[in-house]
Amino acid sequence: MNDVALTARQVRYTNRAFWRNPQAAFFTFAFPLMFLVIFTALFGGGTVIFHGLPFNQSTYYVAGMSAFAIVTACYTNLAISVTFQRDAGILKRTRGTPLPGYDYLAARVAHAIMMAVILVAICSAFGATFYHATIPGGIALLETFVVVLVGAGSFAALGLALTAVIPNADAAPAVVNATILPLLFVSGVFIPIGSNAPRWVDVLGKAFPVRHLVEAYLGAYYGKPFFDFSWSDVVVVALWGIGGLLFAARRFSWEPRH
């Protein structure tokens, strides 16, 4: 079998195991939707100002939770799950078979991207039904799709890179959350960063990829007059992803770290 066929086959096994793991399936799938409902219930009635215009918060959260879903499925879930597999000796075993390591990891990444796409689709359907978040068409839909794919791929690469610094599976959730939760707060995922946001939040957020993912998503999904879609946000996210991939290529460990 060639690499593509081997990877595709591995994705199927990854998917089967994923759905049988209640924790992984629950946290990856239920969290973004749960947060969407909670945030819109709490803050959905308000508006936030973008480009001097009031924008419905509940509609905003549909985009925020889509970005959150991408981060959860690709960065959080992949980093924790791959670290678990490393410490359980599954990666080491795989390394002893003819399956090339990059095929195995490509399958993990491809599966995470698939989950992200499904989650974003669910968030979008949910938003269109309950929160007046109309699903865009034409070019905007295509742009959204690119943002989701680039975002998912980049955060998956960052998730793999992070496993290289996670000492063991027990520490994985703590390390992952410590690296991502503060960013989610300053990047407009849980709290919209309107025109009146403090400057340091703005600067801090833009130094990291989550804010750019959110901006790119808002720009692609809702667009003008509230948001501007800029390819530069997509490029920044992609560059982070490439950086993650290079780091992972050098430092990824197939055996438990001692």
Binding site: M1, L6, R9, Q10, Y13, R16, A17, F18, R20, N21, Q85, A88, G89, I90, L91, K92, R93, G96, T97, P98, L99
Partner: peptide, 29 residues
């Protein structure tokens, strides 16, 4: 690697696949 089988000192198998699925997954490599 195609001609060698390895049983490591400690076991590490995906917990959520069945015996048959696990063997078939590895056999496919």
């Amino acid at each position: 690697k195609e001609r060698v089988g390895i049983v490591l000192q400690s076991t590490g198998i995906d917990p959520f696949l069945t015996v048959t699925e696990t063997i078939e997954m590895y056999a496919g490599y």
